[in-house]
Design a protein around this nucleic acid. Structure first.
Lengths: 247, 247
DNA sequence: AAAATTTGTCTATTGATATAGACAACTATA
DNA sequence: TATAGTTGTCTATATCAATAGACAAATTTT
């Protein structure tokens, strides 16, 4: 990306230090600030962004807290290496296989599960009657010990009774579905949006308040086109990008 | 979406009123707050979010300013109708055809154009030598008089000399490419991310500071697989969602 | 007409945010 | 060993953000 001007905005509900922290993150992502190298000195950054040096210090302090930067007195402030995961989305999107090559270990942790009546939206997506019982799973995707996604998933309770136990045991949706005789499935639809992370996402994904999450709402179907799974997934925008396949 | 708890976070660089404004926007998008109906009274909202009534008023004031809400003394605060556009992304993504049925009028406005040497990234995507001349177009997508996207597009300057004039005249990428003998093209790859809008996006998309943009980086190719166009598009997350096709 | 409900305005207080300047502490280099 | 460059700490001040309470103004309900 060519570094477009993009200046800092005042009195808009987002503090200057938070905006500058975001700009520094962008700079790292775009290669403006190289990894494992020193950031420009505080005075230079202050001049570049048109703010006081102390404001820049607040931004840096937040990023040090996040583990993105490391400050050393007398030497400089350094960018720690933190690769952004590229999460593929396509007809055969699978959590585990998708991140192969980028991480050495990944699995899905089951945070909680419950059975509830289907809302109209979920009933329609799964082809059930409104109010039919559905199983709801709250999960967190982890790769190399880092949280990379947070998802809420619904299944027909009648057809997939006990799937929460299978998830807890296998740590994989694909493996769990196999136990119900589903050896292959396709992604039918995906709708994408973005918003600020809510408190639940912040805790589960270990994010700083104000962070942005990418949100996908997807329906998976069998090869016959029968809907089996409805899911909303949240990805931390600062650590993950989505790569659309087969377009 | 089931309304997950998601409480409000303090001293994180994002002011409470901005967080609450975001929550209200979410509430409208999710149907929690119906369009053309009254919002709960300020005291009720204050209690729901655990903040002072004046803080809620600040959030409402911002959304009134944005044209999302309308406050009437003695009556209540009303949600104005503002449908979120659903922008399709697929192999044959076209700006104009994609929004058919959702809007009555749409076109692409050319904001500026220039010729510059290709960065490594753009050269690789377009199959050119690094430093080769490329045409860069800055455009804004408009539907029914509202800005719905902001894009930066690069073309090989040698092959597409004068495309900026065609764009200015036709208001359409598809129509402009036809003048260069390209009657059909496909989307080869799309990478998706999200971030806070920068100053340029804020101005071009008529957003409030702190707003979130969805970012797509895409390469379009001819039917023979030859790359012809590299583009970065920004969509206001509060007004647009991306619907992934053919997955 | 009266009461209840809701938004609008005002004053006051507290804490967070941002600016400004000075100097200490530490590191690398001439 | 100086010197320059960099991060760390301190004080002070002004503005913004958030809370609190009281009452006015407009609308709807009783």
């Amino acid at each position: 990306m060519t570094g477009l001007a993009s200046s800092i905005e005042r009195r808009n509900g987002v503090s200057l230090w938070r905006q500058i922290a975001d700009r520094i993150l962008q700079g790292i992502a775009s290669g403006d600030f190289a990894e494992n190298a020193a950031l420009p000195p505080e005075v230079a950054l202050a001049e570049r962004y048109g703010v006081n040096r102390h404001t820049v210090r607040s931004a840096i302090a937040a990023l040090v807290q996040e583990g993105v930067l490391k400050a050393e007195q007398g030497r400089g402030t350094f960018v720690l290496s933190r690769k952004r995961l590229s999460y593929p989305i396509g007809a055969r999107t699978r959590f585990s296989t998708g991140l192969q090559g980028q991480t050495s270990e990944r699995h899905i942790a089951l945070l909680s599960s419950s059975t509830e009546p289907a809302s109209r939206r979920i009933a329609e997506a799964l082809g059930l009657a409104k109010g039919a019982a559905v199983i709801r799973l709250e999960t967190r995707g982890e790769a190399d010990g880092h949280a990379v996604s947070r998802a809420t998933t619904w299944f027909d309770a009648k057809r997939f009774a006990g799937i929460e136990a299978a998830m807890a045991e296998t740590g994989s949706i694909t493996a769990s579905l196999k136990r119900f005789g589903i050896n292959d499935y396709l992604r039918h639809s995906t709708v994408l949006s973005a918003r600020h992370a809510d408190a639940d996402d912040l805790a589960a994904l270990d994010l700083q308040p104000g962070a942005i999450v990418l949100v996908t709402v997807a329906v998976n179907v069998t090869l016959d086109g029968e809907p089996i799974q409805f899911a909303e997934s949240r990805f931390p925008a600062e650590r993950v990008e989505l790569r659309l396949l087969a377009l």
